[in-house]
Structure formats: C-alpha cells, structure tokens
Design a protein around this nucleic acid. Structure first.
Lengths: 334, 334
DNA sequence: TTGAAAGCGCTAACAT
DNA sequence: ATGTTAGCGCTTTCAA
C-alpha cells in the first residue's frame, strides 16, 4: 500500500471520468448528471478521498483559514473563553483557526509576516497592537484585520471590544457613591489598550467628581501579579479601602492576599472590583463584583468583520459594546 | 495600488533574476552568490515580500501545520495550559497549530477528515478517541497521530499521557492509610480514557486492600458538574468522608458546595482529592490536594512524536509518565 | 453535461 | 551560480 493521499485523479480514473468532473461532483452547485455524481461520490467515499484544501486554496485564493494571535492563553482565564467561542463559531462557517501564541515580551509585528504567509482570510488579534506597516499591508492585500479588545489609535484596523473606558467610569461612580475614601487602581499589562482605557475612564471620572489622589500600582494580567500588586498596596501606611483591578484574575489574587495573608475582611474593610466577569468570578469562594464583558456579542461582531465582503473593505469599523456591572459580594457598595 | 500579494515573480523582475533564484536567495542553504542574495533580499524586504506558504506546501508536501483537536477549552482549566505550551513549543520549531474544537457530544471522526484535508503534518488529539478507520488512514498516508491523555485500546496510534491508573491507585492508598471509612469516586466525562483509567486504578486498589463498597457518582469535566455530583453524594444518608474527583475542576466545585452550601468542614469532616494540579489548585482559597500531571514532560514527549522521521513511523509508542501526589490542605491524610 | 487546457506560487531536477 | 522546465492538486475558463 503506497504512502500516498488519494487525489481526485485517482477517483477520476476509477470512475472513468475526467478529473475536473470529480471536482464538480463534489461541489453541490456544479452541473453534473445525477448518475455521474452518484458514481463519483460512491468511489470517492470508498477510497476515502478528502479534497486537498491546500491545493484548492492556491487556486481559489481563499484558504478558509483565520489567523488568531493571542497571548495569556493559560493565565488570563478570559482568552480561553474567547478562543473557544471563535473556534466553534468559525467551524460552523467552515473556517479554521490558525493559532499564534504571542510571547508577551515581543512585538506582534515579528510574527505577523509569518501569519500572512499562510494566506489567512482574516486576522484576529487579541494580544498587543500591531504596527501601522502591517495593518497597511493587510489593507493592501485585502485581508481584514480585527483587533479584539485592542485599540490602535490612528490605524485603519477594525476594532471590536468592550467599552473599557465606560466600564472604568462605572466603577469610579459606584465606589464614590458608596463613600470610599482611599481608592486604588491596580493596573493590568502595561501598553495594552484594555488597561489604558479602563484606567483612563476610572481616573477621569474620579477626578470629575473631585477625587484626585487615587493610588496606583503597576501590574500584569495574571493571578500572581495581582497578588504582588495587592501586597504593595495593602502594606502602605495608608492602605486603600477600595481597589479597582484591571482584570478579574488580578482581583482574585488580591482577594486571596487580603483574606489569607493579611487577614483583611472583604468587603467589610476592603472593596475589590474586577473587570471581565470570568467564570471564576461567580464561584462562591470569590463572589467577585465586576464588570461583565458581553463576550458573545463581541464575538458576533468580530465574526461579521471576518466574513464581510471584500467590497466593503475600506469601511473601518469600531464597535464598542457596553459592559455591565455585576454586583456580587466583594465590594461594599450601595 | 493593486490588491495583490507580492510574489516571488515580482521580486525576480525587479532584481533582474529568475524566479527560482529568488527562492534560493531566501533559503540559507541554497547556493547563491552573496551579491545576488543581498540584492534579492533587499528588494524582497522593500516590497514586503512574504513567501506563500500554501504554495510551498503544495510542492513540498509538508505544510508545517499541526492539527490539534480539543474540547473543553473553556471549562477544564487544564486544556488551555496544554494548548499554550504546544503553541509555544511548535512555533519555536516553525510549526503552526490548526485548532479544532470538538463538540463533546459528537464523535471526533466527523471532523477529522476535514482536518486531514489541510494536509497537517501531524495530528494531536486531546478530546475523544478517534475510530480505527481514521487512524489507519493516517498511518497509510504517513501522518503521525498522537493521543494526548487519551488511550485507544487496540489501535496503532501513539499515546502520550499521565499514568492515570497509577495516580488512581496512589489516591486510594493515601485515603485508606488515613483511615477513611466512606469513600466515593466522582467520575469525569464518561467514555474518556482519563476518567476510565483513574477510576480503574482507584477502584482496583481499594478492592485489593479490602475496601469494596466505594460510592460513585457520574460527572463531567466541569465545575458545575462537580457541584451537582457533590450535592448527590453529600445529600446521602451515609455521606462520604472522602471524595476522589476525576479532575481538579470538579473538586473545586465539590469544595465550594461542601463549604458554602452545606457548611461541611474540609478537610476535617470531608477529604477531597483532585487530579491534574491546575494552577487554581494551589490558590489559598482552594489549596487542593491533588495528583500533579507532569505536563511539561508530557508535551515534550508528544513533540518528539510530532517531529519524528517518517522512517520511524511504524513504531508505535505509548508513553505514560507518572503523576505525583501534591499534598495541600483539602484532605485529611497522613 | 463533460473534457481539455491553463495556471495558482512555489520547489526541485536538470541543464548550462 | 543561475536559468529553464516541470509539476504539486485543485478550480476555472473554454470548447465540444
């Protein structure tokens, strides 16, 4: 038995037809006589023939492959949900995901040329923001780029995300409304648009309402970073009575440090609010008050951009969907 | 500006060389005069030329794409770690991951032909076990298949996994050693090899040591299923004083139900032991005693199979790496 | 309805 | 060291 894939030529020979006829028989839209089609399909299935998608792509200039660039897959507890949703929805459309895991310390631009080499039909980027050059190149060759929860000021890329800035403002409001006096912001991975916008909305709104001396601690989107940042904040002489964490996973770290390392009562002595509403946030061990990202609607919006017609291409779209405060038990608020 | 990818022909024209020379200039191993190579590379980078991997694959019969089939990406808290590791390691080898998310309720065999259509160089399967026909087909065309923590009795596929059976035995031993009287097994997703083997090792060892009346509850690899199963077990007239959960994520659900719904002291009144050692297991809110899966070594072993030489193909390999009991605070054991 | 022919962009064999 | 030629497996004109 030869180590060889079955090709349409093999099927054609056995069926006594030409090779293109095999192609047509497999394409429901093509005109083939019912008998021929039946015979070809029978032989194809008998031989276990599967069309070579690579060859088809070369000819048809469309791979049905969507490139997705992520980082934090293991640590954020948010990306994995996003990824699974994308995978399911795209598979239903007959499209596949080519996954690129971006090291958080290196610019995406280094791996994007590689991704484009695979002739992906679209590119979803959920890690850091790519440079202008790459985005221009994608526009030139007609490859849609969707920044998912990433914002690239001044570029032509499409953006789908949660309205992070408004989310930050909401948190500022509820904390001030509840009478918190010493408020802190625990930042996420620096340079990410999500962190920038959440911080901006939060800080701006605090200032607007006359609260200016907000504490701040650098962080990173991970549980451990949340723990570290929480220690810094809570060891101060004037520790905060409320912390807004840029992501749920950091908030969980902060909660654990407060409760199990420092013996601080949450929410009695300290309010903690997160952002994302990951599944863990609702578990009773945490019961985290947070801003819910409308992930289903965000995915749907992204998918529309993935599949839009090339003619629509030059239209740049920015879709920011509102988050929603989910009140649980980690914050003393009205 | 034309909506068209730059091809090697474009580069060739501008450089005043033939198209194959462009190919050679980009391949460090090919003989090209230094001056020519420099000129070609300069022009290529100026035009933003990226080789078309699809075309290359068609010719070279190797795509550098590895197919990976997963389910539970969002819910298990284990798969996402596996996936990220694979992605990183494979990228370092210049290979990419084509991700297929398998619906848990449908057989993998339905999507595998589709995967093979992409001419993947290897196939990693971490969801359910594929049928014999597909595995034979892969063997015939020389595509390595690696079952990751899945076991297909009687097939020729390669297997890499944790020694689940031995892990189950270890748990049986420590629970009996500590004098537990009413022991229960909380099963994972039925039909998965991991669940089968863990249960077998556990039950067999209990019996060997004279304990026969082990309770049992059906479950599924998710937090919610762990909660549901825990309620069933703990609502019994003779509730268990120890539960071995087939996966950490179920154990976390069980812990939360015990503590927050039923007010049961863990580990004083109930011992809970999991399997996997996911990151959450070490968080102080859970502090779960569990069997650690040697995920790094499992990934390495799988990667060796992914990249092995075709000549080695017929050698089937089964690699079972030992897990390790990690003693934390959720079980009253010696 | 079907077959013949061309070609997607690249690599590999051969020739120079 | 470089150019010429062929061909990977498929889809897509174009004829018949």
């Amino acid at each position: 038995m030869p180590r060889k894939k079955v090709t349409s030529i093999d099927v054609a020979k056995l069926a006594g037809v030409s090779q293109p006829t095999v192609s047509r028989a497999l394409d429901p839209g093509s005109p083939v006589s019912p008998e021929t089609r039946a015979r070809v399909l029978a032989i194809a299935s008998e031989l276990g023939y599967t069309p070579n998608v690579i060859a088809r792509s070369l000819k048809s200039q469309s791979t049905n492959i969507i490139g997705i660039v992520m980082s934090n897959l293991a640590s954020s507890f948010f990306s994995n949900n996003v990824l699974e949703q994308f995978a399911h929805q795209l598979q239903a459309l007959g499209k596949q995901l080519l996954l690129f895991s971006a090291p958080p310390d290196r610019p995406v631009d280094e791996i994007l040329p590689q991704v484009l080499g695979y002739q992906v039909d679209a590119l979803i980027i959920t890690s850091s923001t790519p440079g202008q050059a790459i985005i221009d190149e994608c526009a030139r060759i007609g490859t849609p780029v969707i920044l998912f929860n990433r914002f690239a000021p001044g570029t032509q890329a499409n953006v789908v995300g949660c309205d992070n800035e408004e989310g930050g403002r909401q948190v500022a409001n509820v904390l001030l409304d509840a009478g918190h006096q010493r408020i802190a912001y625990m930042a996420g991975t620096s340079g990410t648009a999500s962190n920038l916008m959440r911080e901006k909305g939060f800080m701006d709104q605090l200032k607007t309402r006359g609260y200016v001396e907000c504490m701040r601690e650098n962080g990173f989107y991970s549980y451990e970073a949340g723990r570290t940042a929480a220690r810094s904040l809570l060891d101060r002489d004037d520790p905060p009575d409320a912390i807004f964490c840029a992501a749920d996973v950091m908030a969980l770290g902060a909660l654990d440090v407060a409760r199990y390392e420092l013996g601080i009562q949450v929410p009695e002595d300290l309010s903690i609010i997160g952002f994302d509403d990951i599944p863990l946030a609702s578990w009773p061990a945490y019961n985290l008050t947070t801003i819910h990202q409308p992930i289903n609607r965000m995915i749907s919006a992204a998918l529309e951009l993935v599949t839009y017609n090339e003619d629509d291409f030059p239209i740049r779209q920015i879709t920011l969907l509102p988050g929603e405060l989910v009140i649980r038990g980690s914050a003393r608020i009205a």
